[in-house]
């Protein structure tokens, strides 16, 4: 087997596992929000279990990438592809953790009455699920435009985050007895916003893999410091 054939086959293994990890993450976000909205504790427990699979996939992909780095000594586009995958899985794993944290709040909130005006939370979830999916697809298909579109999608998530936060502040003022539950919803709001940020990070690593330049580096050069 030639070096290229072995490399391509090992990289395909990484791609397959990334797609699998992405699917588990999509389900985890979907299920944690469903568990929250429908107060379904059993579904929340399923999210815990899927996080174990997500963590295992992260380790498997990490192992494959390190093996490629050691055995194949990739350079140029190959090197960027493998190092981008290594960085992306850290963000994907964190997204899995955040879905688990949301599921955790879903169980704590279970049984009580839901806070009103929550329609924006499932809306945020729908957007971040698509962002994660797009990030991984952009990597697999080397789609620069799709990778760059994640920044715009994240603006929408940030906008919704501010709306939910304002709603929750108003709610606490009006019904101080619901403050504890409102704070838990605020945490969920924050986790969804962070998932959006992680998806943007994934898009940036995809951009690096394709162009050789990380967009944060461009901003750092332009501003004298990196954008947070």
């Amino acid at each position: 087997m030639s070096i290229r054939v072995r490399y391509e086959s090992e990289l395909k293994g990484v791609f397959d596992n990334l797609v699998l990890m992405c699917r588990h993450i999509e389900s985890a976000i979907e299920n944690c929000i469903k568990a929250l909205m429908e107060q379904d504790i059993e579904l929340a427990k399923e999210v815990y279990e899927s996080d174990i699979i997500i963590d295992r996939l992260e380790r498997d992909i990490e192992h494959s990438c390190l093996k490629i780095l050691m055995m194949e000594h990739p350079v140029a586009g190959d090197f960027r592809e493998v190092s981008a995958a290594l960085k992306m899985i850290t963000d994907l794993e964190r997204i899995g953790d955040q879905a688990k944290d949301i599921a955790d709040f879903a169980t704590q909130l279970g049984g009580g009455k839901a806070v009103s005006k929550l329609e924006h939370i499932p809306q945020m979830a729908t957007i971040v699920i698509q962002m994660v999916k797009d990030g991984v697809q952009a990597y697999i298909n080397r789609d620069l435009e799709l990778a760059r579109s994640l920044d715009t999608a994240d603006d929408k998530v940030d906008e919704l985050f501010c709306i939910v936060m304002a709603d929750l502040i108003a709610l606490i003022k009006k019904y101080p007895e619901d403050a504890e539950r409102a704070i838990m919803y605020m945490m969920i709001n924050k986790y969804l916003e962070r998932i959006g940020d992680h998806a943007v990070n994934i898009g940036e690593w995809v951009e690096y893999a394709i162009t050789g330049v990380h967009p944060k580096k461009i901003r750092k050069t332009a501003n004298g410091k990196g954008k947070k």
Binding site: I3, R4, P74, V75, A76, G77, G212
Partner: peptide, 17 residues
């Protein structure tokens, strides 16, 4: 040159294509 070569021929050579 080894992380982001500008010429496709360079990329093809150093990556073993």
């Amino acid at each position: 040159l080894f992380t982001n070569p500008k010429n496709e021929k360079t990329e093809n050579y150093i990556t073993g294509r």
